[in-house]
Structure formats: C-alpha cells, structure tokens
C-alpha cells in the first residue's frame, strides 16, 4: 500500500534523525574540547621529544629529555620541595578542615554566618591572596614586622629565610585551601545518618569513642576523596609561589611548577620543560589512581 510505505519511510527518517541528534548536538562541544584540551596535550607530548634552541625546535631527540630529568639536581630538588609542600599543606588542611567541619556541625547562634565566613579564603583569587601575604610577610613594612616592633622586637625575616619562606608558603596554602576541605567534609558529615550516633551514645560511647568508632570510619571515603583532590591540585600550585617568592630564597620554595616555568620561559628549553610537565602529569595520575584503588579496597573490606 502506498500510504503504509510512505508512513514507514517517515518513520525510518524519524528514527535516523533520533539516532543522530545526540551526536549532532554534542559535536560543537566535542570540537572545542578536542581543540582546547587534546590538541595542546598532543603538541606538548610532541614537544617533549624535541631539542630546542632559543625557543625553536632543532630536531627530534626521542626520550632524551625524559632521561635527563633524573640526573638534573635542580629538578630532583624541586620535586622534593614539592612533595614536602604538598604533604605538609594537605595534612594540615585535612586535620584543620575536619576539626572545623566537626565544630560547625553543631547548631548554635551565628553558625550560618560562621560557615560563610570560613569559606571566603577559597573564593579569593590566588594572586590576590599571595599579594596580601606578601604584605604580611614583607620584612621592611610587613604586618608581622610591625607587630614585632610594636612589642619591642626587630624585623621579622620570612621571605628572606629559606625555612621561614617555605613555612610561610605552607601557611598561605593552608589558609587558602582549608576551606575547601572544610566544605567537602562538612557536606560529608551532614549526610551521615543520625541514628547510629544516637545508638552509640545510648550504648555507652563518649564523644571521643563516637568519633573514633563511627564518625571517622564513616567519613573515610569522603576524607580520601578530599585529600586526593587537594593533592592533585596542590601539585600544580604556581601563582601563589610566583607572586610570593618566585621559588626563592635560593631553591627553598622552588616547586616543580616554578622550575618548569623557568625552564620553559627563562631558559627557553621548551622541550625539556614539556618532558618535565608530562612526567609530573604521569606521577600525579599514578598517585590519583592508586589512591582511588586504595579507597575502593578500604571501602570493600
């Protein structure tokens, strides 16, 4: 029948369009993602296998850039500084954030305001944070020095002293990113069921045992996710250090990101810098994967 055939044809056309439509609608976004994300990545990978002179590629050298990294004392030192920085900052942020989240879980007058105030550092632009901390740390006219002089002391050396500068950087990071930990952990705490906690109180547990036996074990997955997130992010810390110390004094605060930046833009060794960042990327990726696997095992057992 003519009518039936016509109807089937329309139906088929309709089905074809239905199938294609999602892809059509995804296409613009996908193109942008490919262009902005994948192409630079690919270009970076290619660059990491080339030798550069005065910022221009002068030939393929295979994996030599990668090999060279492991005998580069400056690289190894910056790696060590970064690991110290990440480990210290993230630990403090986790402990502080957890404590604050536990505290803010209770209901009392002004709690909403307190919660809001506590997340402000997170939303301030990192560069601005760094500038503010410069104003605090500066040995000539900084707030710390002013404070010390007001109490009869001398100038406070923060950014000029290797140990102090490093600690100062950690303090800055903790100040800025504890709120993120706090926020994630508070959300986690708020989503825990109420009854087991009441049951534990009736069963005879005091505040500490409730924390150790219930809160902490129940929060472990959330805590792990927060730590992994923060760790990955902390490995890429750049702007604060760049503004605060540029990696100095000496190499005391020279994180990988700063060293990579110097290699690429100061020393114009684009290929070597690319290899450095690819390596770090892989390290962070491996770290994240193993953390997530660990998490799964903890969760399943």
């Amino acid at each position: 029948m003519h009518g039936a055939a016509q109807a089937r044809k329309y139906r088929l056309q309709g089905a074809g369009l239905d199938l294609a439509l999602p892809y059509l609608m995804l296409a613009p976004g996908l193109t942008i993602v490919l262009g902005v994300l994948v192409y630079p990545l690919w270009d970076g990978l290619r660059a990491s296998t080339k030798a550069y002179r005065y910022g221009s590629p002068v030939g393929d050298i295979g994996l030599q850039n990668y090999v060279r990294l492991w005998s580069d004392v400056q690289f190894l030192n910056s790696l060590w500084v970064t690991v110290k920085f990440v480990a210290l900052s993230v630990s403090f942020e986790a402990v502080l954030g957890f404590a604050l989240a536990l505290f803010c879980l209770r209901e009392f007058q002004g709690i909403r305001l307190l919660r809001t105030v506590l997340i402000i550092p997170m939303v301030v632009t990192p560069v601005v944070v760094a500038i503010v901390f410069r104003l605090i740390y500066a040995s000539d006219a900084g707030m710390l020095t002013a404070l010390s002089q007001a109490m009869g002391g001398g100038a406070v050396q923060i950014l000029g002293n290797p140990v102090n500068a490093f600690v100062g950087l950690v303090v800055l990071d903790v100040w800025e990113w504890t709120p993120l930990m706090f926020l994630i952990l508070l959300a986690g705490l708020q989503s825990l069921p109420h009854e087991p906690f009441e049951a534990a109180r009736v069963d005879g547990a005091g505040a500490w045992r409730v924390f150790a036996d219930l809160t902490f074990p129940m929060m472990r997955p959330v805590l792990a996710v927060a730590i992994v997130l923060r760790t990955i992010d902390a490995f890429g810390t750049f702007d604060q250090v760049f503004v605060l110390t540029r990696g100095g004094p000496g190499e005391a605060t020279r994180l990988i990101s700063i060293y990579g930046y110097d290699t690429a833009f100061k020393f114009q060794q684009t290929g070597y810098a690319a290899a450095l960042f690819v390596t770090i990327g892989l390290v962070v990726l491996a770290l994240a994967f193993s953390a997530i696997r660990l998490l799964r095992r903890v969760d399943a057992s």
Partner: peptide
Amino acid sequence: RDRDIAMVFQSYALY
C-alpha cells in the same frame, strides 16, 4: 550512656 539502658531504634541504627 550513664542511664544504663538499651534501645532498639525504629530504623535499627546499626553501625
């Protein structure tokens, strides 16, 4: 915890 009671909750409240 100082009342020496045991309670079964409506939702069981297991750990």
